[in-house]
Design a protein around this nucleic acid. Sequence first.
DNA 1: CTTGCCCTTCCAGCAACTGGAAGCTTATAT
DNA 2: ATATAAGCTTCCAGTTGCTGGAAGGGCAAG
Lengths: 132, 132
Amino acid sequence: MNIGEASKLSGLPAKTIRYYEDTGLIAPPARAENGYRDYSDTDVHKLRFVRHSRGLGFSVDECSQLLSLYEDKGRQSGDVKAIAQKHLTEIEEKIRELQELRSTLDHLVNTCHGDGRPDCPILEGIADPASI
Amino acid sequence: MNIGEASKLSGLPAKTIRYYEDTGLIAPPARAENGYRDYSDTDVHKLRFVRHSRGLGFSVDECSQLLSLYEDKGRQSGDVKAIAQKHLTEIEEKIRELQELRSTLDHLVNTCHGDGRPDCPILEGIADPASI
DNA sequence: CTTGCCCTTCCAGCAACTGGAAGCTTATAT
DNA sequence: ATATAAGCTTCCAGTTGCTGGAAGGGCAAG
């Protein structure tokens, strides 16, 4: 099938599929006689795999590793788990950071009248965070 | 003072300060006779303001708006609050997304033995999310 | 036969820096 | 005085993960 069809079935934009091919994340597919990329069902399956792992927030590099492991029937699940665990830890860290930001911002937003007057605790809080 | 000193006092890398100048976030400082950038205390104050607002996760563009408002003594606090509120909402949305990812990943990681055997619920979950 | 859509490649740009090269000036050490 | 090191200048390239657009070829329908 052409890239348009593979795009529909995988849920990835055609642009993105070509990009993944360029950067080596996915192997180049077969080519039809007219030069068009020709995707198999297996190719589409892998594209979907990549879309899902990207959707879980894995970096393209991590997706590449996960895809290799997926294709390696002699894999060790410990290797997969290590990647996922590391990613999970990073996500948890990110959540903590964002919650801190939310807390600070929420406080600032709530103390600002937000009207036509110029005095603004938000700006003061940014200028001098120690004052919060 | 030279950029190195301004960097120390503001907490921003010299590279970043030059970058902010290039992109118009901060006004170009005075220049000494030797061509070196020459920062005033006021300049440093603004650099700190930018560092803090970046630290709160505002985009450079939003920082630019906030800095303008900070310098505008006739500002309306409602304008500031609108920017901060929008950002807060985005952060809350981001937190929700990450919590979803965390939930899914946590489940996957916990169901994987993570040993030398090849069967791996993480890979299966990525390949077929409907199965989770 | 032309219109329109799909495909191809390549180049540029987004955010927000960061690193490095090449070439000044200034400060320090001998 | 001189050699070296540190700090400054500019400019260009790379990072991540795409996305948009230009220029051109393929192919089916009207």
